[in-house]
Amino acid sequence: MAALTPRTAELASLSRSGLYRAAQARRLERVARGIYLPADATPADWDMIEAATRRPDGTICLISALAHHDLTDEIPAALDVAIPRGSRIPATDAAIAWHSFDRATFELGRELMPIAGTDQVIGIYSPERSITDAFRLRGAIGYEIARDALREWLRRGGKPAHLIATATRIPRAKAPIMNALEVLT
């Protein structure tokens, strides 16, 4: 089941006050401010649910995406979520790090991933896009993370041509990736 909010509760034939009464009666469990799940719902990642509910266009990126694709051993302190630059960053209760990405390249490498235990989906960047962003933002997340992710991706049979095609479309990414590929291959 998708998360219920005061707005979506009305679509499910439940008034706002009925939503709050159900939460007080423990038939609904509060995920975050204004977001509820049925108490008997399958366990799910509440941070992802909150991110997908607050920003349906949000996309898991950087270290969180690399970790999802098993390209890093780093454990992100917060869920890294990209939103289009200029969008309002929502107030959240969860450990979510919001990142603003250029609107022109926002959809590049974006895929939809189901959130386990719910009917909801959230965007996630492909391994190639995640590596490209790691190199592009290496000053913020660390060069070693980007290099190690690239090394693991190549070890698994990743095609450098696919990575270069992605990096060519993202500003400030192609040169450092080409340098790293030259050293690693």
Rank of each mutant, 00 (worst) to 15 (best):
N179Q: 11
S13H: 11
I124V: 12
A146N: 04
P38Y: 14
W153G: 08
L184A: 10
A78E: 12
S87V: 03
L137V: 00
W98I: 08
G139Q: 10
T185K: 08
L112Q: 15
E74L: 09
M1Q: 13
T92S: 15
G157R: 05
L79S: 03
P127C: 04
T5C: 05
A12T: 06
A41E: 14
E107S: 15
M178L: 14
H162I: 07
E182M: 06
D45R: 04
R110T: 02
A149C: 08
R54N: 09
R33E: 14
L184T: 03
P160C: 09
D93K: 12
A161I: 08
L19K: 00
A134H: 03
G123R: 01
D119Y: 02
K159N: 15
A23N: 09
G86R: 12
T8A: 05
G86M: 01
F101Y: 12
G139Y: 02
A2K: 13
T53Y: 08
Y36S: 05
R16M: 03
D133A: 10
R30C: 02
A23R: 14
L79A: 04
P56Q: 12
I170A: 00
R155I: 07
L62N: 03
A12H: 05
D73H: 07
I141G: 02
G58Y: 12
G157F: 10
A140K: 14
T166I: 13
T5R: 09
A134C: 07
R138G: 07
Q120N: 01
N179G: 03
R26F: 04
A140E: 12
L11F: 10
L150M: 09
Q24F: 06
P84H: 02
R27T: 10
F101E: 11
L4V: 06
G157S: 06
F101V: 10
A41K: 05
A52K: 07
L19H: 02
D45W: 09
D57V: 13
R30A: 11
